[in-house]
Design a protein around this nucleic acid. Structure first.
Lengths: 212, 212
DNA sequence: AGTTGTGAATCTGTTCACAGCC
DNA sequence: GGCTGTGAACAGATTCACAACT
């Protein structure tokens, strides 16, 4: 089933996902067609970049006219694997975990949080937002039973490495890691490390030197 | 005061901030020195990359020995502008906003959330975690009075563009934007767009094609 | 006239490989 | 012997610029 298109730059993949949001917003504003220039403008990219990104996967536009928004939305969604729903587990129901469990954007893109894992006895066995909470020790068993595709990790850093190893061992191949411990990807596993303090730190780098 | 080191790759800046976390963790484990190889290994980078990143800013290591962790921590912190504290405002106290207001990692890196802004009448005028909550309309006045350096935006997308324009007009030069609307940077302003659903979407791209 | 799609040229970032120092 | 620091070589991503199409 996987259809390879040759090698795709990682930055292209990240931008595709931005285009989806831009297209949804243009659609809400009543637009039917959109040019590469307009997509670029809204995001601070260049129009050539938008066209090149899309060209890796095919021809979706009409010369002189631009892109049909509905068609392009559907095409990019398919490219990103969003033409199906994905079962997501959340590990760690702290403040960030709650935010993730409540995140509106997931539903729209096809992600369903199917199970939550934590170690706090007062949480385990209950439900949050209708989603069952299990003990982290149960992860391998439950993940297999439910068919979890992706795990989001939002736990303290001291147990991060061990927990993520167990997640990988249990057969889950996609990991979105919010902990302070950045985990290298490895054969067969897709890991994305996101660190919120890091994001602020790249901002201060530029602010501190007045170069921006 | 800003000391220019020539042009620095954006990826170098992002990795520096990862190195800080790695160094802190090594330090907690009782290490005093660390090699570029060890830093690389823990994060899935290459040792040459670590050395090259640091070489943009000076020589921090000892040949044959590696890097003194305390010294390197201090050096990188200074490079990233973390040798001072930064005043941060949070706009939007929804689920994600609450997570940001409670985020432990900020304190450690020198970020203090000094004010929260929202539009809900039941929140405005109260405090959250000891941080005062103001109406978003008050942002320009309060931001100036407090001396806000960076604004974190965690509001629904429909009001994102307008709110961010007002933040920029009020003189804040650093923005961490969590909304679905990605905002282009512009002269004099540093903007970082972070989208959590996007992160999942780049994972599914690879999962969907079995290529990882 | 307007806009796409794309090879070629350019620019940016990474890796190699080794001299130099501890 | 081990590890850094770095110029040179390489790989990867972006931009240019224009032919092709509506």
């Amino acid at each position: 089933m996987p259809v390879p298109f040759g090698h795709i730059p990682i930055f292209t993949v990240e931008r595709l996902s931005t285009y989806i949001r831009t297209l949804r917003q243009a659609k809400e504003q009543g637009e039917k067609f959109i040019s590469s220039e307009e997509i670029a403008l809204r995001n601070g990219f260049t129009s050539a970049q938008v066209r090149k990104d899309l060209s890796f996967f095919g021809s979706f536009g009409k010369k002189g006219l631009g892109y049909n928004i509905d068609l392009l939305l559907e095409s990019i969604s398919k490219i990103l694997g969003l033409d199906r729903r994905w079962k997501v587990a959340l590990i760690g129901l702290g403040h960030l975990g709650e935010a993730l469990a409540n995140h509106k954007g997931f539903q729209k893109s096809g992600f369903d949080v199917k199970a939550i894992f934590d170690i706090a006895p007062e949480k385990v066995g209950k439900k949050y937002n209708g989603i069952p909470i299990f003990h982290v020790d149960q992860f391998p068993k439950k993940a297999k039973a439910i068919g979890i595709d992706i795990a989001m990790i939002a736990i303290p850093s001291h147990s991060a490495r061990e927990t993520i190893e167990n997640v990988i061992k249990s057969g889950v191949r996609g990991i979105l890691n919010f902990t302070d411990v950045s985990i290298p990807a490895r054969e067969g596993i897709v890991i994305k490390n996101v660190n919120i303090a890091s994001e602020l730190e790249t901002i201060t780098f530029y602010l501190a030197r007045g170069k921006h």
